[in-house]
Write a protein that binds this DNA or RNA. Structure first.
Lengths: 243, 243
DNA sequence: GAGTGGTCTAGACCACTAG
DNA sequence: TAGTGGTCTAGACCACTCG
């Protein structure tokens, strides 16, 4: 086991170590169940202090890749599920646009906020918001109808760029750092209109999702109501239990 | 702002501080947007070292209650959503039994694992597993039908205790420490049989959830297939974006 | 009893933000 | 320029697990 640390790199040492440990786990150099060797040895071997090594290890414990047991050691978690999907339901929706699936912007206009939207975004009723309606397709078939509201002051949404880049990336490059989101996932039967938009029969099962996303100051930056064809979409994600 | 730290307590100092900070945020002594004061001052005032204070603050940053900005300071997040629901979809299902909702055990028996169950639990096909089928009701109305499989060697499931305590607590007290879970949430229309069990009409929208839960060694300890009346149930949770 | 991780200390230098 | 958090060091003692 060898690690290459560059003290002149702007990347923190603990982060360099964490990345290389993760890579080693990923491609099997560190197999599930393997003990990592104690922290003192590791730190002397690497020429790092113990707290720095601990910080690297801790970050992988937080990711669910390692487990520490006092009196035993640190071992690679013996899981069938290698790579936790993290925030797949969020990333999938916000970031995946422009990859496999295609997204068509149906509406992109500024409107006054209704009561529900205003409440969700913490704005006054009637305040200007951007209404964004998108149809997402894979393999030429509609999968989801995404309706989003954003405070108009937040950023400008160019339709062409939106279809190529995705909402999430545009927000990020506009300096909005997403911090948390609250989601509600439910189901219902499709109305006639919804069925037509998604190429389904009336009464077909739909998966619904509502989300409010917040930036790191706690400001609501996005509120969305999404519906998905249940026959072609499911939310798949991994939970980590915090001890 | 005053904090009471007990050095004779077995509770770590950083944890005592984190708890008291969280309480102060919770009941408003630290209002959203408030700066926390710099770490050096805090540590000298509290008679702690800076790393210890940092560890306390970091744990609240991880929970999404605080934000740190270099050159600025640490402030309370200005969020409408105070208490993240954490793993509500998991806890809700595993732990809520015995609280508001009532749970009725329909089946609790040992059966040989089918191919799908064996694959999910990482067992040989035909290995003994516990099949648990429960009907969950609130206000006297059925809400969900929960079907779970557990390795038979894991623990004994007394039906009466199960209805009173909940599966999660029983696993925990049997020494199983949950570590992660993989979930898939989807939707479909109810079959005639499912509709009858949940007091719905055929074709009603159902929310479906499949979960495999793992302990801290990566062993699969539970596989479940749940269906919910969409008209009375939705998954609600909070996501934190890891920077 | 030997070895492990868990906690804690008292410093240090740096990068970033603001006025 | 002053103040903040970000990183890092080199020690220390303790609690736990195991043979």
């Amino acid at each position: 086991m060898h690690f290459a640390l560059d003290r002149n790199s702007p990347v923190p040492l603990y982060y360099q170590l964490a990345q290389q440990l993760e890579a080693a786990i990923e491609h099997g150099a560190l197999a599930p169940g393997n003990l990592l060797g104690n922290e003192i040895d590791l730190s002397t071997r690497l020429g790092l202090s113990r707290p720095t090594v601990r910080q690297a290890i801790q970050s992988l414990v937080d990711k669910g890749l390692l487990v520490r047991r006092r009196g035993v050691g640190t071992q690679v978690v013996h899981s069938q599920v290698k790579r936790p999907l993290e925030l797949s339901s969020l990333y999938d929706d916000l970031e995946a646009a422009g990859q496999g699936p295609t997204t068509q912007v149906v509406r992109n206009e500024t409107v006054p906020a209704g009561a529900d939207v205003a409440a969700a975004l913490g704005l006054a009723e009637g305040a200007e918001v951007i209404l964004l309606e998108r149809l997402r397709c894979t393999h030429g078939q509609p999968v989801a109808l995404l309706c989003n509201y954003l405070p108009a002051a937040l950023l400008e949404l160019d339709t062409a760029r939106l279809e190529a880049t995705g909402l999430y990336r545009m927000m990020r490059s506009a300096g909005v750092t997403l911090h948390s989101a609250r989601q509600t996932i439910g189901a219902r039967c499709a109305t006639a209109e919804e069925a037509a938009q998604l190429d389904q029969k009336e009464g077909a099962a739909l998966l619904t999702m509502q989300r409010t996303a917040y930036d790191d100051t706690g400001r609501a930056v996005e509120y969305g109501t999404h519906i998905y064809r249940a026959s072609r979409y499911a939310f798949d994600f991994q939970l980590l239990v915090r001890s």
